[in-house]
Amino acid sequence: MTTDSGNTRDSGPGTVELAARTSIEQVEEGAELAPKFDADGLITCVTTDAESGEVLMLGYMNADALARTITTGEAHYWSRSREVLWHKGATSGLVQEVVEMRIDDDQDAVWLRVRVAGSGASCHVGYRSCFYRKVPVAAERNNGSDLVFVEHEKQFDPMDVYGDAPNPTRL
């Protein structure tokens, strides 16, 4: 699969045309989707809850994941650790229905606003958000430098949901 812009992507139920990047004006002010993928063929995607605005996760999309998200209305990502296309919720049932998709000014980052099926959790560890801990900064560091949990209860038990599926976290 190629990941350069200017190609039609077959994404299952439909195709998505990704425009070639031809000028700064076209990229910043134009109406064509001309994403800039990095050297690994990926684009960063920030995913937030459509109602609360809470950041749920940060992921990556290749051209296929981007096209499938656009055509299906459900979030697809590229798993860097497993090196596979990943339909969020296919295993867990915690499908992310896309309410809105935006692309940033230079088209190298995507923002998804989603509704999450089931418990509303998006983290494979069982928490609602993948950002369930905060890092103390500035004056907060005087009270210690350990991570602080901002979510105290998991929304689901990962063993019940994923069983013996391999954990995507890599050391």
Score class of each variant (00 low, 15 high):
Val27Pro: 12
Val84Thr: 11
Leu42Gly: 02
Leu66Phe: 02
Ala138His: 11
Asp40His: 14
Asp10His: 05
Asp105Leu: 15
Met101Gly: 10
Leu85Pro: 02
Gly144Trp: 04
Gly93Tyr: 04
Ser23Asn: 05
Gln26Trp: 04
Gln107Ile: 03
Asn142Tyr: 15
Gln96Gly: 00
Ile70Met: 11
Ser92Cys: 06
Ala50Ser: 04
Phe149Lys: 15
Gly73Met: 07
Arg82Thr: 01
Leu58Phe: 10
Leu112Pro: 06
Tyr127Lys: 05
Arg170Thr: 14
Thr71Asp: 09
Ala138Tyr: 09
Val55Asp: 09
Val135His: 05
Ala90Asn: 10
Arg82Met: 03
Asp164Trp: 03
Glu28Ser: 13
Val95Met: 07
Gln107Phe: 07
Val27Leu: 09
Asp105Gln: 14
Thr2Phe: 09
Asp160Ala: 06
Ser119Leu: 10
Ser81Cys: 09
Asp108Ser: 03
Pro166Tyr: 15
Asn62Trp: 08
Thr2Lys: 13
Leu94Asp: 10
Ile70Lys: 04
Tyr60Phe: 08
Leu56Pro: 05
His124Asn: 02
Val95Arg: 10
Cys130Lys: 01
Ala34Asn: 09
Gln107Asp: 00
Ser81Ala: 04
Val150Thr: 04
Ala20Gln: 10
Asp10Val: 11
Thr71Ser: 08
Tyr132Ser: 02
Leu56Gly: 01
Val125Glu: 08
Pro158Met: 02
Asp146Glu: 10
Met159Asp: 14
Tyr162Met: 11
Asn142Phe: 15
Glu100Asp: 11
Thr48Ile: 00
Leu85Ile: 13
Glu151Gly: 04
Leu66Met: 06
Ala67Ile: 08
Glu29Trp: 12
Ser5Phe: 13
Asp38Tyr: 08
Asp108Thr: 07
Leu85Val: 08
Val98Asp: 00
His76Ser: 08
Val99Asp: 09
Val150His: 02
